[in-house]
Each structure stands twice: as C-alpha cells, then as structure tokens.
Design a protein around this nucleic acid. Structure first.
Length: 194
DNA sequence: GTACAGATTGAG
DNA sequence: TCAATCTGTACT
C-alpha cells in the first residue's frame, strides 16, 4: 500500500496530525533518485498561544507566513545559520499551526544506497540528507512531484507512541517548554538523542 | 545601517 | 562543554 496523504489528513487538529505522522513515509524525488524515510519523531507548534512558536502572539513576518497556510504545505526555515528545519503546516488557513519533523528512519531504495540509523536522526540532519532547503518553502505536499508523505501501512500504533516535552525551546519558559507536544516511536533507534 | 539571537550539531 | 555561522527581524 502506497497512498499519498490527502488534504483532509492535514486539516485536522495539530496534535492529532503530529501523532499520526509517526510511521508515515516522507518521499523525496530528486532527479531520477528517490529518497524515502519513515517518520519516527515529530513536535507540534501551535501558535499564536504557543510561546515557542514563531507565530507567538499572532506575529506575521516574511519568514513565518507559511505557517498560516492551510494544512498540507511546507514551512521550512534556517536556524543557527546552518540547519534547515522541515515543518508540515496543519489545521485550517489562518491558524499558525505546524508539525516539526525531527527524525526519519532511512529506507533502502536500491541496492547501492546504504542506510544508517544516524543519517536523519535530527531535524537538521534529515534536511541535509534529503537536500531540503528554502526552495521547498510553501511546497504543497498534496500536489508536489518532488516531496510528499505517503501511508505504507506502517502507521505507529498508539501503544508504541511516546509523548514528551519538546526540545530546544527553553527560552519559551517552563510552561510551554514542558508541554508534552513531542511524539516519537518507542524504541526506534533513529529518534534524535536527548 | 547595525545589532542580535536562534525549534542544532558534532568536535573536544 | 561550547563554538560555528548567517539570515530574518527589530531598532536607531
């Protein structure tokens, strides 16, 4: 079963989308090559209330405007001057909500490609591995020919999903940084290290 | 025009 | 433990 996720999947509440993306596959076509990885770790950012969100307080800038798109679009940005962060916009248009993809489990696509558990076990690393950058800003995952998410019948069972606090947002204060909005697949070796 | 800080990473 | 590295954003 290889079924691209449709718009309706992304339009639902962000916490639900973040959880159900676990076990789905991110597919990146690059020329003749196809790079595939199973999503094993996500985080939800729910502005404008969320102090850790770039859209906190309803802020709109040239950088974060994609967060306000309807679900199914890509919000990608650079942090620390070096790493791209891939986010999937969720929810309705006008609501700044998105899901950060934090880690993938690489899948072999041909006998020449080698897969290692630490190729994409971090938000910056997975973008480097898939060659994702600003050219994907605002990409529509329901229509794009070079990037989308599909269901291959491996969606994580609820019993295998672990919820914890998000990472790297201490600046937002303990109330927000401790919200259990990070999800990952239990015992998966590709989840980013703490 | 200039100052400043960040949803990370990997080397030491 | 800590510095790299650079762009968007805010302020003068």
């Amino acid at each position: 079963m290889r079924k691209r996720l449709r718009r309706a999947f992304y339009l639902r509440p962000t916490l639900q989308v973040a959880q159900e993306l676990l076990g789905k596959f991110l597919v990146r076509k690059r020329g003749k090559k196809t790079i595939i990885g199973k999503i094993v770790e996500t985080e939800a950012y729910i502005g404008p209330e969320d102090r850790a969100s770039h859209a906190y307080g309803g802020k709109v800038t040239k950088r974060n405007q994609a967060e306000y798109f309807k679900g199914g679009y890509v919000y990608i940005y650079l942090v620390y001057g070096r790493y791209w962060q891939l986010n999937i916009v969720s929810g309705m248009a006008g609501k700044p909500e998105c899901v950060l993809i934090r880690a993938l489990e690489p899948r072999a696509i041909d006998k020449n490609s080698k897969n290692s558990f630490n190729l994409a076990n971090g938000p910056g690393k997975l973008c480097r591995w898939m060659r994702l950058n600003k050219s994907f800003y605002g990409e529509d995952l329901t229509k794009s020919k070079r990037l989308w998410i599909e269901d291959r019948g491996e969606t994580a069972r609820k019993a295998d999903v672990v919820r914890t606090a998000r990472i790297g947002i201490d600046y937002a204060g303990s109330y927000w940084s401790q919200k259990p909005w990070r999800f990952y697949i239990k015992d998966n070796p590709c989840v980013s290290k703490k």
